[in-house]
């Protein structure tokens, strides 16, 4: 904890004189600025991807978990009897909030993507569907299956588990992928800034030599470089975050007909999350430069 407070103090109260002893120009300045900007820009999209995946996983898990379908396959003359029997069973099943048979129009709409708009559903031997919505506590799926087998032998309960689970897993993995991307981006940025810091330290060997000669402590020299790199990373990351947020804002907005990609963005307070990236980038730069500088100083003198 003390060490953390020291680090924070170094970051917040870095000596401006120390900053000045490092020449202000050099390719490492632009490298750091560009790296932080580009990485934060990518991190904004990774964050948007992760949040969108999370929302999708939650939506699928929630919406699909509360509904189930009963498929009834029976000869045409027994279809209505079977439907009635199923609805009667459902009406007396604890945990079932409501149940209804899909109309011909609804069934036609479901089949339209495969058979076109004018499918004569009523004259074809297609199974009929009954949709049920469960209560919060849910119902006993196995018990319901057994009752259906007894009362309506042609009825099969599909509680969506079979295809819901892989979808939810896929969305969850996508969310993890987003977070992993952010971590990788952070790691890459740390590596790039470490390289830039090492290059800067090597290029400023004379500065370090002079500072050591006049009695500068390692911490003083390190602060000079750390402050410079932290501020550069903060500035670059702020620009990258802003550009990323504009990019996300320009993506098509989510709508009912849209797919996953049109929902890729931030909603509500989620727009505040990208604003955390510049301070995080600065922290990454601070730690990376500090570590590199102390290591390099021990090598140089």
């Amino acid at each position: 904890m003390t060490r953390f407070r020291t680090l924070l103090s170094d970051l917040m109260h870095a000596d401006r004189h120390a900053d000045r002893v490092v020449p202000p120009t050099g390719h490492t300045a632009w490298l750091t600025l560009f790296t932080a900007g580009a990485m934060t820009f990518l991190a904004v999209f990774a964050l948007a991807l992760s949040l969108a995946s999370g929302r999708l996983a939650d939506r699928w898990a929630d919406a699909l978990a509360r509904t189930a379908t009963i498929r009834i396959a029976a000869p045409p003359d027994q279809m209505e009897v079977q439907i009635r029997a199923v609805l009667d069973v459902l009406a007396t099943t604890p945990g079932v909030a409501s149940a209804r048979a899909l109309t011909d129009d609804e069934q036609r709409a479901l089949l339209e993507p495969w058979f076109g708009p004018d499918l004569p559903v009523e004259s074809l031997p297609v199974p009929r569907l009954v949709e049920l919505i469960e209560e919060d506590d849910g119902y006993d799926a196995e018990g319901l299956r057994q009752r259906l087998a007894a009362e309506a032998p042609g009825a099969v309960l599909d509680d969506h588990t079979r295809w819901r689970r892989p979808l939810v897993i896929a969305a969850g993995r996508l969310r993890l992928l987003g977070w992993a991307s952010i971590l990788l981006i952070g790691g890459t940025m740390a590596a790039m800034i470490t390289l830039a810091a090492n290059a800067s330290l090597a290029a400023n060997a004379q500065v370090i030599k002079v500072l050591r000669l006049v009695g500068a402590r390692d911490a003083y020299i390190v602060r000079a470089f750390v402050r410079r790199f932290t501020l550069r990373a903060l500035a670059g990351a702020a620009a990258g975050a802003l550009a990323g947020m504009i990019g996300v804002a320009l993506l098509p907005s989510a709508d009912a007909a849209g797919g996953f990609l049109t929902g890729l963005g931030f909603t509500g307070a989620g727009w505040l999350l990208p604003l955390l990236l510049p301070p995080l980038a600065a922290l990454v730069a601070f730690l990376a430069t500090r570590t590199a500088a102390f290591r390099k100083l021990k090598e140089l003198t």
């Binding site: 002893v21 020449p23 030599k209 500072l211 000669l213 006049v214």
Partner: peptide, 21 residues
């Protein structure tokens, strides 16, 4: 003798004081 070439002479001369805060 080496100096910090981007800083004026007076700042270079006072460098030992600067690094000692």
């Amino acid at each position: 003798c080496q100096f910090l070439d981007h800083l004026p002479l007076a700042t270079n001369v006072t460098l030992p004081l600067t690094v000692s805060n």
